[in-house]
Design a protein around this nucleic acid. Structure first.
Length: 802
DNA sequence: CATGGCGGCCAA
DNA sequence: TTGGCCGC
């Protein structure tokens, strides 16, 4: 049986939350610790205990206070609170960090929880067997390894070396595979420790259930192999409920109905019998697992399929009035929003559905839970407010006497609410346009974004945990401004100017002075969002370079397959996803504009940014010590100028107060985007009069998907123009509610994206409106203004200046 | 009041 | 689509 020839591993992090705390605070190492959440009540609930504390009798299912009694010197790090609830994002990030290491060893990685992952290493084992002589394997190659059924691993080794001649059950090939598997798992665990500092345990067997089963048998920092011929031995004493899926009610009824306790006793029953008692599927499953057979494949799955958050309101804390429900839903919605933002950046995906879950207390005192789902529609702007308001609607619509009692301003609820949860799922891949929007959001919002959108409505904050993750991107928030500055600098540079702001490696192998060419060369290696834009600027720079380097949505689109709604397979989840994520693109963009990585790391504020990018020179009489070639920009900089901090905009030559730099950059970007929109309209008009000739795509010198290169060649231009005009009389069409145009059904998704791009433009325009200066700029959200067709919905440019 | 906050899967 | 179960 092919399934039995696998080598499956379960990696399980040892008391993971504790390890995360220990890593963050090395003082804690060697001390007894337990991670708690919500410490106010009896010291908080313990959710993880390290092994020092376990040795002193501290266990899970204890309160912090109990732990203190058992172990007075225990340290109790607390899970941070955000918006009034436990925030486990740092553990989530740590789990991802580990999984990324595991992924290097096999693409067949299935994340089972925040701290557990299955790996199918059948292929790596086969590979290793080609070069590794099994007889040379010794226990030194796999420290901390145990073989179930053997007193020590050396005995198992001996069995393998002698082909297990003493045991009829011994399957030599199988044992060899597991042995080599154990060697590889040792290497995996060493790599995890080396690269993350975390220790883990592992189970090695020929399927998931068994790997999981034995993983926990030797902990911490150990690994356990379960050879087939030892299964019965193990099962003879193993309580049935220890097996995954049998730990709950089902396992209990199995034990009850069959009057058995041990796993081994299951073998006494025929498959038919088991099917008759339970159901066909369960019967077969039980029959198989009793014989160590589990056919479940390890699925390549890295990302969760849903993102949710919830909160209990126990006892007196139960919600009694509408207003508190509203408040909590808002917090839950905001958290979802934050996590979705990050998820979109990392995984290029967006959810199609949300689910509200709740439970109420019935008059008889028991709880009753329920849930209602909502499928997003195109007009929905996914944001915290949408989530919370939809959730409230769903809650009030739902039949169960949740409705507020009339009168008294709808204040009181009929039944106390004990639990609220919002989750989103059914992800689909983001289209290129939406991706573009996200990237621009990221860069353009600049410092004003965080101030504008009070994302973290922090009710309590136990620690000053950075709310957003610590991946490369978010660490470099300060770099955003820098990149924008660089971007405009590059766009603006006269043809003849030096390219000193571009990456060094590009200077090396090129005597071209043309920016586009330099950037183009950087595309050999990688492509960034900005590179895409800049790369389109093949024409000689003109007065309005920005316009020439238009953000041409259609051109960007052609770099990826033409489909708006990529039907959701496992694409967004699996380990094979090969497209560049938004995070990739942002990081590449960053890299593209970094003179030296240290510069960006060093940058702490706008002033540093500007001086390091040589744009600003306040106190400029002493400034030339840093560089001699300030003259690249110097002519326009008022040398003996100001007491105030200003900088001279390369774009318009105006002197801009430092504190308005971000907005000013946004303004130029808005100009650029607006021009793009104009051109779209122009194009639209032109093409209404003349037939469209599908234009040949530029040579795309990117690896990407191979099919894509073929298809892009023989047309499939996803040009906006093409779907605005070309209407096949016979093809089904749909009338766009935004602009009233008839659009071929096949192109309708793209058409909607076009409007999306328009909205983006408008929002950027709003963002640059100086009347909202400073911190109170509302970030995107709520664009319910209808589109006026054929009319520029922008303000006059001049109005941007006071 | 008292593990809580997740997440996955599946039957109906 | 919903409710329930399972497990970390």
């Amino acid at each position: 049986m092919d399934q039995d020839n696998r080598v499956v591993v379960l990696i399980d992090m040892d008391c993971f939350y504790c390890q995360v705390e220990e890593k963050m605070n090395p003082e804690l190492r060697g001390k007894p610790i337990a991670v708690v959440q919500y410490n106010p009540w009896k010291g908080g609930g313990i959710i993880a205990v390290n092994y020092v504390a376990r040795a002193q009798g501290v266990g899970r299912h204890m309160r912090g206070d109990e732990a203190k009694e058992k172990c007075p010197d225990i340290v109790l790090p607390s899970v941070p609170c955000l918006r009034g609830k436990a925030d486990i994002s740092k553990y989530r990030e740590a789990g991802k960090e580990v999984a990324r290491v595991l992924q290097k060893f096999s693409p067949l990685l299935e994340r089972a929880s925040i701290d557990e992952a299955y790996l199918d290493i059948t292929a790596p084992v086969q590979e290793r067997l080609k070069t590794l002589n099994v007889n040379t394997i010794h226990s030194g190659m796999m420290p901390n390894t145990f073989a179930l059924g053997y007193d020590c691993v050396d005995e198992f080794l001996a069995d393998v070396h002698t082909c297990g001649i003493e045991n009829m059950e011994f399957d030599y090939e199988h044992a060899k595979r597991l042995l080599v598997g154990a060697v590889i798992v040792s290497e995996i665990r060493a790599a995890v420790y080396e690269e993350t500092g975390y220790r883990c345990s592992a189970g090695i067997a020929h399927n998931k259930i068994l790997a999981k089963l034995v993983c926990g048998m030797n902990k911490p920092n150990k690994q356990t192999v379960l050879p087939k011929h030892c299964i019965d031995l193990l099962y003879s004493t193993l309580p049935l409920k220890k097996v995954k899926h049998l730990g709950g009610k089902f396992g209990f009824t199995v034990c009850e109905m069959l009057k058995i306790q041990k796993m081994g006793e299951l073998q006494k029953f025929s498959e038919k019998d088991l099917q008759a008692r339970f159901d066909e599927k369960n019967g077969t499953w039980l029959y198989n697992i009793a014989r160590g057979i589990d056919l479940e494949p390890v699925q390549a799955k890295f990302n969760p399929k849903s993102i949710g958050c919830c909160k209990n309101f126990k006892g007196k804390a139960a919600l009694l009035d509408l207003e508190s429900v509203r408040r909590w839903l808002k917090d839950l919605g905001d958290e979802i929003d934050d996590r979705l933002d990050q998820d979109a950046l990392e995984n290029n995906r967006t959810p199609k559905q949300m689910v509200l879950s709740y439970s109420i207390q019935l008059p008889d005192g028991r709880d009753q839970s329920s849930s209602r789902s909502y499928n997003f529609v195109a007009e929905d702007e996914l944001c915290g407010e949408l989530f919370s308001s939809k959730a409230l609607e769903l809650l009030l619509e739902s039949s169960e006497g949740v409705k507020a009692i009339e009168g008294e301003g709808n204040r009181r609820l009929k039944a106390p609410i004990k639990f609220l949860g919002i989750s989103v799922g059914k992800f689909e891949d983001l289209t290129e346009v939406k991706k573009t929007k996200k990237i621009l959001d990221y860069f353009c919002a600049g410092s004003s974004k965080d101030a504008a959108k009070p994302k973290q409505n922090i009710k309590e904050k136990a620690t000053n945990e950075p709310a957003v993750v610590k991946n490369k991107v978010t660490n470099k928030n300060e770099g955003k401004e820098y990149v924008m500055q660089k971007f405009f600098q590059v766009c603006e540079k006269p043809q003849t100017s030096k390219v000193e702001s571009l990456p060094k490696q590009n200077l090396d192998h090129s005597n071209k002075t043309n920016n586009a060419a330099v950037i183009e060369s950087s595309l050999d290696k990688q492509e960034s969002f900005f590179a895409k834009i800049l790369n389109q600027n093949k024409d000689p720079p003109s007065v309005s370079r920005i316009r020439d380097s238009e953000l041409d949505v259609e051109k960007i689109r052609t770099t990826t397959p033409v489909c708006d709604v990529v039907t959701y397979g496992e694409d967004s989840n699996d380990t094979y996803y090969s497209g560049s994520t938004i995070v990739d693109e942002i990081n590449t963009s960053m890299a593209l504009f970094e003179d030296d990585p240290k510069d960006v790391a060093r940058v702490k504020n706008i002033r540093d940014l500007l001086s390091s990018s040589r744009i600003v020179k306040e106190d400029s009489d002493t400034a030339s010590e840093t560089e001699q070639n300030t003259d690249a920009v110097a002519p326009d900089i008022p040398q003996n100028e100001p007491q105030v901090d200003t900088f001279n905009c390369l774009e318009c030559r105006k002197i801009i107060p430092l504190d308005a730099v971000a907005e000013h950059s946004d303004y130029h970007l808005a100009l650029k985007l607006r021009e793009e929109e104009r051109q779209q309209v122009r194009k639209e008009k032109e093409e209404r009069n003349s037939a469209v000739k599908p234009k040949q795509n530029e040579e795309t010198k990117k690896k990407k998907q191979p099919e894509e290169q073929n298809s892009s060649r023989n047309e499939i231009t996803s040009s906006i123009a093409s779907f605005l005009v070309k209407i096949d009389e016979n093809a089904p069409t749909e009338t766009c509610s935004e602009c009233g145009k008839k659009v071929p059904l096949a192109r309708f998704g793209e058409h909607l994206d076009f409007h999306e791009a328009q909205k983006l433009n408008r929002e950027l325009n709003k963002k640059t409106n100086p009347s909202f200066t400073g911190s109170s700029v509302k970030r995107k959200r709520k664009s319910n203004s209808p589109v006026k067709k054929n009319k520029m919905p922008c303000r006059p440019i001049d109005s941007f200046f006071r």
